[in-house]
């Protein structure tokens, strides 16, 4: 067993989101929800992070950014799509500049629905992600 599940560090990237989910991600850190209880830290640096939380859909211009961030994260890593836009494009699905959900660009492990996703469901999704993280660690450990 690893300690990944006890100390998941998170990086948040805002795709083409409306801010709704973003501020809910931030709200998770604050006294009402206080995710640091679970050892979750919102680090701003992909190289330190275990979980990539993306809000909002992908558009033409942020595709390379998302790929870059994902590539700079170290194994094992998990991607969580927060909110309906990150899942499928949501209300903006039909916009000309929206390519759809995050899974168009990088593999997504957990989808969190909602517009905007509520802090409770975000925490729930992250906890789901921890299981995936542990699994990936096992696979990754074998490779090593």
């Amino acid at each position: 067993m690893s300690y990944l599940a006890k100390s998941p560090w998170l990086i948040h990237y805002d795709g083409s989101s409306c801010n709704g989910c973003d501020i809910e991600v931030l709200a998770c850190l604050t006294p009402m929800y206080d995710v640091e209880r679970f050892g979750i830290i919102n680090t701003g640096n992909p190289k330190h992070a275990d979980i990539l939380a993306i809000t909002g859909s992908v558009n033409e211009q942020n595709i390379p950014i998302i790929k870059n961030i994902y590539d700079q994260m170290l194994e094992p890593k998990v991607v969580i799509a927060i909110g309906i836009c990150a899942t499928s494009g949501g209300i903006f699905r039909e916009c000309y500049n929206v390519q759809g959900g995050v899974d168009q660009v990088i593999p997504v492990d957990v989808y969190i629905p909602g517009c905007a996703a509520r802090p409770e469901s975000i925490i729930d999704g992250v906890v789901k992600g921890l299981g995936v993280l542990e699994e990936k660690y096992k696979k990754y450990g074998k490779k090593r």
């Binding site: 000309y96 500049n97 390519q99």
Partner: peptide, 15 residues
């Protein structure tokens, strides 16, 4: 300023 998927999107037919 905006590097859009479609050029001049407001003037052309888009998806």
């Amino acid at each position: 300023l905006y590097e859009t998927a479609v050029k001049y999107p407001m003037s052309v037919e888009t998806k």
